[in-house]
Amino acid sequence: MLAARFHGQHDIRVEDVPTPTPSAPDDILVEVHWCGICGTDLHEYAVGPIVTPTTPHPLTGVTLPQTLGHEFSATVVEIGRDVRDVAVGDRVAIMPAIVCGRCYFCRRGQGHLCLVFACTGLSAETGGLAQFAVVKEYQVAKLPDSVSDLEGAVIEPAAVAAYGVDRAGVTGGDVVLVTGAGPIGILSAMYAAAVGAGAVIVAEPNPNRAALAASLDIGEVLDPTAPGFAERLLDLTDGIGVDLTVECSGTSPGLATAISSTRRAGSVVQTGLHTKPAQLDAMALAEKDLSLHGSWCYRLTDWPRVIRMVAAGRYPVARAVTAQIDLPDVVSRGFDVLVDPQGDQLKVLVRSGGGTS
């Protein structure tokens, strides 16, 4: 089968590799339909290896090269003898986290904080940027007929966005600022609107991404580097500031905008991942009595809930998809386009098999 394999910085090769086979009684072989290229994948490509293991991973034992892809939908083609939740032929979305189930955090229902956390497509034998993958039963969630294969591949980043917004604690009617209009920022804005935000404002300096965000009509889109940004934000919030900010840019300027824009006693959640230490105005954090939250991954049990929101039309995740490409073109039309700072794409999905849109 074909698979996009990460060997090192700027080195992804579409290679012919053996089709994986289930070996454990709770293993499931799936045929991949669509797989998204994530910001984490882009970080690996541009400056990695970061989380892809160069020595045997403590849980999975794998090392580079790694088949990438952890945002994907698929159809079940083979199941282990102990699998009960899905059957051959079921369409599924993959929850890629691999956890030990035994550490302090796993035993408390916080598998996303597992001490030996691994991930299909980053630190596992298989990944979604391939024609087939093997996953565990706890990693699959059935898709209803009303959710397409394409939407199924966006459930993973949609869950990341949802968890960040939930960490910030949106209350009905809140004014929410999202800094950074990348895929997670756009999905965060959509989710905030879906769970009751009174208004959503997006801050994005890249004109191409700002235009994409504006075309989705989620809320006002502002350039945080433009003169008058702070004044416009105060105009929109009766001079108080936003109730909470979801910081999705993963940059020090984005975090600074979040802290300066949020009202006293408001909340800021850091959803975007920083690849280097950030500068933080701790005095402003203290003076404004702000709550600053981290956000890592998602609750591993969130897939059915997010899928139901998509099925009901409340969380229109497919609107974040701006390009659909084939697996052989994953580098030239996917990774190279997305790492361009002035790129005009938001979420690129890769067609690995027979999925429909």
Rank of each mutant, 00 (worst) to 15 (best):
A4D: 07
R5P: 02
H10P: 00
D16W: 04
V17W: 01
P18H: 06
D26E: 14
G39M: 09
T40Y: 03
E44A: 08
A46D: 14
P56K: 05
H57E: 03
H57N: 06
P58I: 05
T60A: 00
T60E: 01
T63I: 11
S73I: 08
A74Q: 04
A74E: 04
V77F: 07
R81G: 06
V83S: 10
R84C: 01
D85I: 05
D90L: 07
A93H: 10
I94F: 04
I98T: 12
C103W: 04
C103N: 10
Y104P: 00
R107W: 05
G109D: 03
F117K: 03
C119T: 12
G121Q: 07
L122R: 00
L122C: 06
S123Y: 09
T126Y: 10
L129P: 00
F132T: 07
A133F: 07
V135M: 10
K136G: 15
Y138M: 09
V140W: 07
E156V: 11
A161Q: 07
R167S: 06
G172V: 14
G182K: 02
A193P: 01
A197C: 11
V202G: 01
P205N: 04
P207W: 11
A210C: 09
L212H: 14
D217Y: 00
F229A: 04
E231W: 00
E231K: 10
R232M: 10
G239S: 08
I240S: 06
I240T: 13
D243S: 08
V246P: 01
E247V: 10
E247A: 11
G250V: 10
G250K: 11
A256W: 05
T257V: 15
I259W: 07
S260A: 15
S260W: 00
G266E: 09
P277G: 06
L280C: 13
M283Q: 13
D289F: 05
S291F: 00
Y298L: 10
P304D: 03
A311Y: 04
G313Q: 01
V321M: 11
T322C: 12
I325C: 09
L327G: 04
L327V: 08
L327I: 12
F335G: 02
L338R: 08
D340V: 08
